[in-house]
Amino acid sequence: MLKSKFSFLALILLGIVLIAGCTKESEITSPLSNSDKEIIKQIIENDDLIATSDVSLNDGTYLPPDFDFGSLSKEIYPLRWGRVVKKVTREYEYEQVNDTLVVVTVIRTVESDLKIAGTYTQGQTTPDTVVTKPLKEVFKRKVQVVKRESADGAKRWRIWAVSLVQGGTENSNIVIKKIALTLPNGNVVEVTDPLNQFYRPGFLGHREGVPAFNPSQPVKVSVTVQSATPDTDIVSMTFGVDRFGFHRARKLFRLVSQDGTEEVYEANIKVHLHRGSFNAMIHAISRESLFDDSAPVSVSVWGVPYVVF
């Protein structure tokens, strides 16, 4: 079951207070060395909970026909689409809070081709053309790293908490404003500030704060977006992808309400059977990005870490 928003936020805030309270920011005695930065970088890159967000972004080709997209409308022209990642550039910004706590902002610039398999014939269900558009996105995630004493008595860096992923195209005309998860018992967890909402990782089965589900559990996901145009946009979610790119699934959301430039989309998701650490990547893409073969791409993406027991 997904844990309460308030319980894990309280846990993270308490942990930060306890860690930061030992050493004031003005009393840093050992500036972060290049060696420490490299160690922290490797820890972040090797963490499954973080690594699966990168893999989830690369569709490898435009999506195959058995993906669960449903139907957008009768006059649909794009039939399948997806990113083909060509280049990923990583940057790390280190904020040393004190001698035992560092907040790392991981910035990934992803250059891709957006492949759109579609048709210029209204009502046709078989693609007869593939449109390729350049796509450049920047994604950010914050990672809290702490130095703790290990079983052998040595102090080593370890991941304390991770934020959600937030990114998309520069000056996008569509922006995700909120996501909400509704559980079978009616509890709702909302996210409105992805880079400042942290989840406490750990070993599988002992994750404090990371959204946790049972296999086959039903979850309703709601996404609120702000759009620059009155057209119906496209919101979907990629999930279930492990660090090797297997088990990729995608679900199309349906528009349930619209008030001016604010749109709300919903989808009912059934949690997959394979267990482990994952990132659910929610994509909001403007209608013209897919329906206009010459318009630039506008997309907003949030990534939510979760675990399946």
Score class of each variant (00 low, 15 high):
178 K>H: 08
178 K>N: 04
178 K>C: 05
179 I>W: 05
179 I>F: 03
180 A>V: 02
180 A>G: 03
181 L>D: 13
181 L>Q: 12
181 L>I: 09
181 L>P: 00
181 L>S: 04
181 L>G: 00
182 T>K: 15
182 T>N: 05
182 T>H: 00
182 T>L: 00
182 T>S: 02
182 T>A: 02
183 L>V: 09
183 L>Q: 15
183 L>P: 01
184 P>E: 10
184 P>S: 07
184 P>T: 08
185 N>P: 07
185 N>W: 08
185 N>K: 06
185 N>S: 06
185 N>Q: 07
185 N>L: 07
186 G>F: 05
186 G>D: 01
187 N>Q: 04
187 N>F: 04
188 V>D: 02
188 V>H: 00
188 V>M: 07
189 V>E: 02
189 V>D: 04
189 V>Y: 10
189 V>S: 08
190 E>M: 01
190 E>H: 00
190 E>T: 04
190 E>Q: 01
190 E>V: 01
190 E>K: 01
191 V>C: 11
191 V>K: 11
191 V>Q: 13
191 V>F: 09
191 V>R: 11
192 T>F: 04
192 T>Y: 09
192 T>I: 11
192 T>W: 04
193 D>Y: 00
193 D>L: 02
194 P>S: 05
195 L>P: 00
195 L>K: 08
195 L>E: 11
195 L>T: 13
196 N>Q: 09
196 N>V: 03
197 Q>W: 09
197 Q>Y: 11
198 F>K: 14
198 F>H: 14
198 F>Q: 12
198 F>I: 13
198 F>V: 14
199 Y>E: 14
199 Y>L: 12
199 Y>H: 15
200 R>C: 14
200 R>Y: 13
200 R>M: 13
200 R>P: 07
201 P>Q: 05
201 P>N: 05
202 G>W: 06
202 G>F: 04
203 F>T: 13
203 F>C: 07
204 L>I: 14
204 L>E: 13
204 L>F: 11
204 L>R: 10
204 L>G: 09
205 G>V: 05
205 G>R: 03
205 G>P: 05
205 G>H: 01
206 H>T: 12
206 H>I: 08
206 H>G: 10
206 H>Q: 10
207 R>I: 07
207 R>C: 05
207 R>T: 15
207 R>H: 12
208 E>T: 14
209 G>F: 14
209 G>V: 12
209 G>P: 12
209 G>H: 15
210 V>K: 07
210 V>A: 12
210 V>I: 15
211 P>A: 05
211 P>E: 06
211 P>W: 00
212 A>L: 13
